[in-house]
Amino acid sequence: MLRVEDIGVRFGGVHALKGVSLTCPAGQVTGLIGPNGAGKTTLFNIVTGIQRPDAGSVHLDDRDITRDSTEQRARAGLARTFQRLEVFGSLTVRENVQLAAELHRGLRRRGRSPVELADDLLARVGLTAVADHQAGVLPTGSARLLELARALAISPTTLLLDEPGSGLDEAESHQLGDLLRSLAAEGTAVLLVEHDVQLVMRICAHIYVLDFGQLLCEGSPAEVQADVGVQQAYLGAESVAS
């Protein structure tokens, strides 16, 4: 479970995030949506320790991890994928996942071998056919799935996904939704940033809307859809040019 409290960040004179608090409980998919530049990726970077917040705190499973390094957070059960891909392009697809499994196994030596786990995870995201190809040549959609499989290989309790659906076609995106739901059902806390609103509405139990670095509103998919402010944030205000 992930809890973020009152996060604030400034870039130069601009507030990138201001007073953002959200909770992402285990066992469900939580959505985080908002227009480009709203601060979603910045929030992910703060949660994973790549950036430091100017204010606020991050809690993982009720432990304050605000001062922890990125590595420590990963070891505590936090995994993520990236909007701008960070696959290990020189390794094969299988090696990408295998390495993650090995890093995780370094802690506790039991269970299945990393290669077996890698093959299972690749099958789960549907990349078995390209397991032996170099990861750098994958198209975006597949590379995003690879990042997902890689993140799963460290058996996270909380999973942050930054636009996993972009680059996927409709059928693939539907499959991704099913996969995320089943992950949540297994007890993982999933925080999903996604522009495919259809996907978000279908699988999220609770949705936060970020605009201008601040939370605009939160609620069930139906509540968020009905919110006028959300429509404005997403589509722009009515009658600007008149």
Partner: peptide, 21 residues
């Protein structure tokens, strides 16, 4: 695994850190 770590490190330090390396 050390070799994979090295290559991964050359490719994406951010990816490595977020996997707990």
């Amino acid at each position: 695994t050390l070799g994979r770590r090295l290559v991964a490190l050359g490719d994406s330090p951010a990816g490595c850190s977020t996997l707990g390396m």
